[in-house]
Design a binder for these strands. Sequence first.
DNA 1: CGCTCGGTTGATGCACATCAAAGGCTGTGG
DNA 2: CCACAGCCTTTGATGTGCATCAACCGAGCG
Lengths: 240, 240
Amino acid sequence: MINNLEALVPELNEFSVFSNLAKNQILDLCTGGEIIFSNHRDVIFKFGFTADYFGIVLSGAYKLSKPSPLGDDVIVHFSTPGDVIAAFIMAQAKPMYPVSATAMGPSRFLKLPRSIYIEKWKNQPELIFKIQNLLSTRMSLLQDQMVMLKAPLNQKVASLLLILLEKSPAEKGLELPLPLTRKEIADTLGASVESVIRIMSEWSKLGIIQTNDQYIRVVKPEKVIEFLKESYVEMTEKVT
Amino acid sequence: MINNLEALVPELNEFSVFSNLAKNQILDLCTGGEIIFSNHRDVIFKFGFTADYFGIVLSGAYKLSKPSPLGDDVIVHFSTPGDVIAAFIMAQAKPMYPVSATAMGPSRFLKLPRSIYIEKWKNQPELIFKIQNLLSTRMSLLQDQMVMLKAPLNQKVASLLLILLEKSPAEKGLELPLPLTRKEIADTLGASVESVIRIMSEWSKLGIIQTNDQYIRVVKPEKVIEFLKESYVEMTEKVT
DNA sequence: CGCTCGGTTGATGCACATCAAAGGCTGTGG
DNA sequence: CCACAGCCTTTGATGTGCATCAACCGAGCG
């Protein structure tokens, strides 16, 4: 088991939380850790359950969602490699997961026991700091979505695609870093699948995007950006 | 000036960030602090500007809003006494305010220079920790709003009123802790003023809520909770 | 081979936004 | 002291973006 983790150190070192840390320190912080291999749609923890562990996304992606009173889930975040999940609730007396985490395609997750957080993570100012940064960027993402509240649906979709595209590592080029269904887009934006499909198949016909098995490729990002600017133009036209 | 702050210590000690701290420590952490007295609609900092200071809300309330591409602002948070504002961006190299902060009614704000954060706050694990907690609750509030995305407008309003009511200190009873206009409710929910008004004047007629000068009083919270529980099905049944 | 999952398309209706117009209230300046 | 400008609220009329419902197809899978 320990060996297992040792091989992982170089990979971990790449992530922002563990950059600048010595190998030993990393190993120390991951004591009791366990690698979870998830398949598509596997759930690693569920909303409302006692939070016994937190962890780091190693590869693939997980969606964090919350059940809505109407039955369908709402997606609040997409976690990609390097993302620390559920860390900031570990300090609570009896924490419960505020969201469910579900794998999108085959993924790997380093699962760490809560005790290690209390004993070691919590006492490292640098670490807490970096987690705070992650939290803070996650919050600005949420806020960016809030800003789009009154925009028409096509602009919301455009905005989402561009945000995810930014996250995408350079190798992937114009392809989104995670397999995304239209339903998931709808659940993120609070829209219906059908409406999202109508917008996106339009774009497919125009050659703006492509969907190859699971993955979406934004062929003409400029076009998508134009959709976002539309409101601007209309506004200035109206004002003047 | 220092005397000024000294008198403030008992007040500060009540807030969660400063609980468990000695008087001297608090004073030390507030070195260079300045109390800002705001009037209604005064802006203490503006979206996009260089973030030279952070601070704590002492009394009254401030709304944090972000300009939307459509011109109207979107409100992302209501900050009440004890809330630490803009602290988690202080550590960035050249931070910019991600939101604007505007006073809602007469309010007081303890303005602290960024330098003190870098020099003192950042090195106190306990402090960072408590700020992380504030951040984390702010995030769950945002998530709670996301969950309501697909709900009809009256449920969104109901949810917002109840959330704010929970924040309300016991003395205030059923009155919201901040002066709230219908426009501000609309800007929070991404709705139009008129729609919010139509819903709330309905409730006023039914005696569920009251609006005395600026402040909203939720006379029958049970009724409001009922709106939340109504599923789509029940609703359409009622209408017909 | 039935099953679930993801995508697609069309018809219909409603919950809201939008536009327009007006009255109260507060502050400000001539 | 009055006029004027902002801000907040209110009400009605009109339009539309998008949800909803219903059906169908292809692909993968146990």
